[in-house]
């Protein structure tokens, strides 16, 4: 689901690469890869890949997410959230399934279960 060569930009996917800053309400109907900086809010209807160089200062919602970078904001993931060892999340996490690698950092409240927060992402 999340495997991808660094620096590549496969067709059809939205990519925010290193060296680019996005500021505002960022929304996407497809899959998104973030390697750069984002502030404001991030709403992704598909899968979200946050690369190790990514710096996100925003509330984030997605269907599935894999995080290797830094997120300063609340995360709301409808299905599966994977935090790899280099990830740092400063905010609350809501997810149905959560995978946390050794070394990953979470500073916030974690909620898990069948219906996260009573409703699905993007409703």
């Amino acid at each position: 689901m999340f495997k991808r060569e660094a620096g590549a930009s496969p067709g059809g996917e939205t990519v925010i690469a290193q060296g680019v800053k996005v500021d505002g309400e960022f929304t996407s109907n497809g899959n998104v890869i973030i390697e750069g900086e984002v502030t404001g809010s991030v709403v992704v209807a598909g899968d979200l890949h946050v690369g190790p160089s990514a710096r996100i200062h925003a509330d984030v919602s997605a269907q599935n997410a894999m995080v290797a970078g830094e997120i300063g904001g609340n995360m709301r993931v409808a299905d599966r959230l994977e935090l790899v060892e280099s990830s740092r999340v400063m905010g609350d996490i809501e997810a149905q399934v959560l995978s946390v690698a050794a070394g990953a950092m979470i500073n916030g409240r974690v909620s898990m279960g069948e219906k996260v927060g009573g409703k699905k992402v993007n409703e």
Binding site: G7, S9, T14, V15, I16, Q18, G19, V20, G36, S53
Partner: peptide, 22 residues
């Protein structure tokens, strides 16, 4: 489509990165 130089690490050469936003 935005092409940036990316950052150079100690072991890796500078890699070009491509942003693509619809």
């Amino acid at each position: 489509v935005i092409r940036t130089d990316g950052r150079r690490s100690f072991f890796r050469r500078k890699q070009s990165c491509q942003t693509r936003l619809p």
